[in-house]
Amino acid sequence: MIKTIDLKKIFTGRGQTIRAVDGVSTHVESGEVVVIIGPSGSGKSTYLRCLNGLETLTSGHIIVDGIDLSDKKTNLNLVRREVGMVFQQFNLFPHKTVLENIILAQQVVRKRKRDEAEKRARQLLVKVGIAEKENVYPGHLSGGQQQRVAIARALAMDPKVMLFDEPTSALDPEMVGEVLEVMKQLAREGMTMVVVTHEMGFAREVADRVLFMDHGKLVEEGTPEHFFTEPREERAKAFLKQVL
């Protein structure tokens, strides 16, 4: 489903160069849940943002569903509609109600009719458990509710892959569970997911594979059992000692 080959993203600015992603090669199979963990600043977000073209890559290749993003001729908008993304800060559209948030892209991008889009939006609101809030503006929702709306908004495009960038990091602890629950359900339904998170419990329970990044490099990769019980790399061991 997703394949990255020697992916590099180098930021240059104010006289310094930051190798945010430094030669990552990996792949995500269809239906697989991949969790990316690593210390702050290790390039997890940048890597994820490269996957849907929010960052332009410096070198290497990303192939999503057979389309090479690094190819100049690729229309990134066509790729992005197949790749849903959920952000740490939710990024709901504050001037639109919950329902409008979810139907906008369906209408503008997918060219669905209004009632068809509304029907899909209501289905998804039921699924994420906030059907009663459809006419509320995002500012009136709790963080957990906002994040669930954001998930519904991404799902409304019927994406082939969902990317999550620390979806629970901005939430109060009592709201983390409700968002993770929605994500677990998605995983059970066979959605292909790439999740950056600090929720080790989630990684252990849901992930098919864990990627550990440090300093832009993919340091270790394996099943959760392997990764959490007997990591090979020193850096992974040190990191786990800190977070567990």
């Binding site: 849907n52 929010l54 908008n77 066509l78 992005r80 509609r81 790749v83 849903g84 993304m85 952000f87 800060q89 990024n91 709901l92 559209f93 906008l104 892209a105 503008v108 991008v109 997918r110 954001a150 908004r153 991404a154 495009m157």
Partner: peptide, 17 residues
């Protein structure tokens, strides 16, 4: 906030949209 443009782009909207 930059996140607004990113959220819109990640849904497949082009820049004018």
């Amino acid at each position: 906030p930059k996140g607004q443009m990113e959220a819109a782009r990640s849904l497949g909207l082009n820049v004018p949209q």
